[in-house]
């Protein structure tokens, strides 16, 4: 057995998995609170990547150092995606509270198509190159051929932001209110929790993490177009389902699991069918174990 190849695939899977996990959190949090598959969440990630590109492009013209550009790109992308997520909820989902169950999902699909076409019209439908913003660290030199500086930054940034989110959800007042709303929205409202504010916060947090993922992955892959959100979105949703939708630690676990599975399947079986593995995993899990790897099946009330 070729151990180096095995480890290389594992590390590649880790990088991928971190990004999936970042996006998956947005799906899982929104689903946990309003039981909606926010179909347009992948597009928020894509918008984050584009905002990052624009910031990098503008700052690049004025000759800022790469590290400053990266920082600004991430901060502005997060700011904007949070704003997009917030607005999207107000426009496309809030007026639909209490509507038939399929209406918000169709609205979400519409929103997703809208944002894709918004990018096509306002920017371009072609692939754009994304500048490399993360310098090669010297201390990474010995293993750079299997795990580069970019990978390190992605994994580290994801780990830090997820740890921060966990602390936020567990220990802050707003985090507790979010958990209460996810458990029982009506009861939480009766106890004086402003559900609208909680829902907005959820969208803002989810979108911010997606934006972070969008900028990081673009500098990793070096290119982007308006479609990157769709594939990443479906995969991140798969990750959320794998971990048990509604559960934040589950989304992290699911992301890593999906990243590793994909990486190993592509490495050992066939890289042509990489996406097929991900989609098959999604279909199989939804059919046979919709509650995820760890979850329990709910009983329907009659």
């Amino acid at each position: 057995m070729d151990w180096e190849f095995f480890i290389e695939l594992g590390l590649g899977g880790l990088t991928r998995g971190s990004i999936y996990a970042l996006i998956a959190i947005g799906y899982t949090m929104v689903y946990g609170i309003i039981e909606l598959i926010n179909f347009a969440h992948g597009e928020i990630y894509m918008l984050g990547a584009f905002t990052g590109l624009i910031v990098a492009g503008v700052m690049g013209v004025y000759g800022f150092p790469a590290f400053a550009i990266l920082l600004m790109a991430i901060v502005i992308a997060i700011l904007y995606c949070a704003a997009y997520g917030y607005t999207m909820e107000k426009v496309a989902y809030k007026p639909l509270r209490g509507a038939a169950r399929l209406s918000p999902l169709i609205s979400a699909i519409g929103m997703s198509l809208f944002l894709q076409n918004y990018i096509i019209l306002a920017q371009t439908s072609d692939f754009l190159p994304f500048p490399t913003l993360i310098p090669d660290f010297e201390f990474m030199e010995p293993i750079a051929h299997i795990f580069g500086s970019t990978d390190l930054v992605i994994v580290a940034a994801s780990a830090v932001s997820m740890a921060a989110l966990t602390v936020f959800i567990k220990f802050t007042k707003l985090g507790k209110a979010m958990r209460a709303t996810a458990q029982n929205r009506k009861m939480a409202m009766l106890l004086g929790i402003n559900a609208d504010r909680i829902i907005s916060t959820t969208f803002i947090i989810g979108s911010s993490l997606a934006a972070l993922g969008g900028v990081l992955i673009s500098t990793h892959s070096g290119q982007l177009n308006f479609m990157i959100g769709f594939i990443a979105g479906v995969k991140a949703f798969t990750a959320a389902v794998l971990g048990g939708i509604g559960s934040i630690p589950g989304a992290m676990l699911g992301g890593l699991f999906l990243g590793l599975t994909e990486s190993y399947a592509a490495g050992y079986i066939s890289s042509d069918y990489e996406d097929v593995f991900a989609f098959s995993l999604l279909v199989i899990f939804l059919i046979f174990r919709p509650s995820g790897i760890l979850g329990k099946a709910p009983v329907e009330k009659v």
Binding site: V91, A92, L96, A99, S103, P104, I106, S107, I109, G110, M111, S112, L113, F114, Q116, N117, Y118, I120, L121
Partner: peptide, 11 residues
């Protein structure tokens, strides 16, 4: 884009 917007507005 009009179609996508119409889908949301319709809902």
């Amino acid at each position: 884009i009009l179609f996508a917007a119409a889908m949301v507005l319709m809902m």
